[in-house]
Amino acid sequence: MEYLNIIFQEVYKILFLLVPVLVSVAMIVWLDRRIWAFVQKRQGPNVVGPFGLLQSLADALKYIFKEIIIPSSSNKVIFILAPIVTMTLALIAWAVIPFNETQVLANINVGILYLFAVSSLGVYGIIMGGWASNSKYPFLGAIRSAAQMVSYEVSIGIIIINVLLCVGSLNLNDIVLAQQSLWFVIPLFPMFVIFFISALAETNRPPFDLPEAEAELVAGYQTEYSGMMYAMFWLGEYANILLMCALGSILFLGGWLSPIDFYPFDLIPGAVWLIFKIIFLFILFALVKAIVPRYRYDQLMRLGWKIFLPLSLTWVVLTASYLFYFNLLPIN
């Protein structure tokens, strides 16, 4: 009986986290399309609901009622598993995101490693989908994305090491609390820029959306997918983007800390600040999509391995020497 009670409590907590995440994914898709449209002097989705807010719901409804087509020459088990893997990985990562000092589903010691591990597993959904389709375009897209995500993970990992040097803990709450006096975006600003660009590449967003470059590869790994399975890829992708925005705001923008910490403003809960920061980073993501043309593949690899990796490694040495020299290393 008490086991059942514990399970019900946990399920309640998980639902309380996941339902807002899924709803906000739908909203963020709308925001993305609106920003994209405004930059190009179009209206964007503005018909369904007020300001077109319900457009994503309408789209989701359409996807649900569409037929799911499974190619006869595909590897069926892996073909069906691929969108499930993408979606699951995008959602389980939210378990460790702290919305407040206490509001976190799982306050684990190695939170940042968990996030990094889950985001590095994200490539499997794409590879599985691309291979199981047994078709040229998805396969090429999958291979491109595997190489791309593995390359940019390296620089993200080293940027995380930079932040961890200043914090001295792998716990996400400790990382946020270490920024109480100064957000890491100020001392580590170059790393923030590199993190943002690497996050674009990691989530296959433009200008690094080579795995699904429509001019070359139709839709990349998603070509053979239809109906709800396509929608799951899509939801997983946007949940991943939100996750990267959350990671960026925790690592560099002070997470749930308030920028204006005096009387009338400190009544605003920390979760609201975190959401504001996530939306701010997402608007940057959307603007980049509208402004920048797509990279060529060799340029992408060159940027990852020859520029970002040496730069972030050098910055690790710099940060470590600075902290060591001025005796600021967080040793506990």
């Binding site: 684990i108 010691n109 190695v110 490693l113 968990y114 990094f116 591990a117 590095s120 597993l121 490539v123 499997y124 590879i127 291979w131 291979i143 595997a146 190489a147 593995v150 993970e153 990992g157 792998l170």
Partner: peptide, 21 residues
């Protein structure tokens, strides 16, 4: 927990991707 996470990152996230590749 550290070993477990490193196992995920290194083996699953990088080595196995190259195997699959």
């Amino acid at each position: 927990e550290f070993l477990g996470m490193i196992m995920l990152i290194v083996y699953v996230g990088a080595v196995a991707v190259l195997f699959l590749f």
